[in-house]
């Protein structure tokens, strides 16, 4: 099995981008993350994760249209790639496998 290199934060970012579908850009990702995680992240942390994911080939990006807000700066939209999909699936499977293998009494008396 090929090793999937995804940190926890990176995984959540990828999933969030998938959730946002066609509307995933810096600010929307940040807002979505904050509402789901319940705590804020810095622009720096998010951008670092995005750049790293893009380098690993898990994200595609494309420039949006120019608008009047954002000081006239374009948005950059992110989309997850097929390999990201595979990687996420793999992680999910491993986790599901682990969950199903936990003896039921462990969960009961935890």
């Amino acid at each position: 099995m090929k090793k999937t290199q995804l940190g926890e934060f990176e995984e959540i970012v990828l999933l969030t981008i998938a959730v946002l579908h066609n509307d995933a850009y810096g600010v929307s990702i940040k807002n979505e993350l904050e509402s789901r995680l319940g705590y804020g992240t810095s622009v720096g942390a998010l951008q670092t994760a995005l750049k790293r994911l893009e380098e690993k080939g898990y994200l595609d990006s494309a420039w949006g249209e120019t608008s009047n807000v954002r000081g006239g700066k374009r948005k950059k939209y992110y989309k997850i790639t097929a390999s990201a999909q595979r990687a996420l699936q793999e992680i999910k499977d491993i986790r599901a496998q682990l969950w199903s293998d936990i003896p039921s009494m462990v969960l009961k008396y935890m």
């Binding site: 810096g26 622009v43 951008q47 954002r70």
Partner: peptide, 9 residues
Amino acid sequence: EEIEGDLLE
């Protein structure tokens, strides 16, 4: 451009 835009927004 991207990050500055995000920041401003």
